[in-house]
């Protein structure tokens, strides 16, 4: 999958789960500080990414990812290994 496509789907899912406008989300956006994610939502966000891309991510490692751009990298790595 092209990086651009992964990025656009990551933004769509982030917007849905966190209830923010997709247009405000950039690669640099931090889930907690910029997009207002509460700690409880981070578990749902990880599950939503897994569902969107049909992958399994290691939870502790996934929860350490802080920005949208880093989430794209993280997910792309999983897609390559699929």
């Amino acid at each position: 999958m092209e990086r651009a496509e992964v990025e656009s789907r990551v933004k769509k899912v982030t917007a849905e789960v966190l209830g923010v406008e997709e247009s405000v989300i950039t690669s640099e956006s931090r889930f907690v500080e910029d997009l207002g994610a509460e700690s409880v939502q981070s578990l749902e966000l990880v599950a939503a990414f897994e569902d969107e891309f049909d992958i399994e991510m290691e939870e502790d490692a996934a929860l350490k990812v802080k920005t949208v751009g880093k989430a794209v990298d993280f997910i792309q790595k999983h897609l390559e290994n699929k």
Partner: peptide, 19 residues
């Protein structure tokens, strides 16, 4: 209970024993 969460997402969460 958690409005807006899709079934597929809930299914993945419920696979975790603690959830």
């Amino acid at each position: 209970n958690r409005k807006g969460v899709k079934t597929g997402v809930a299914e993945r969460l419920l696979k975790k024993d603690i959830i």
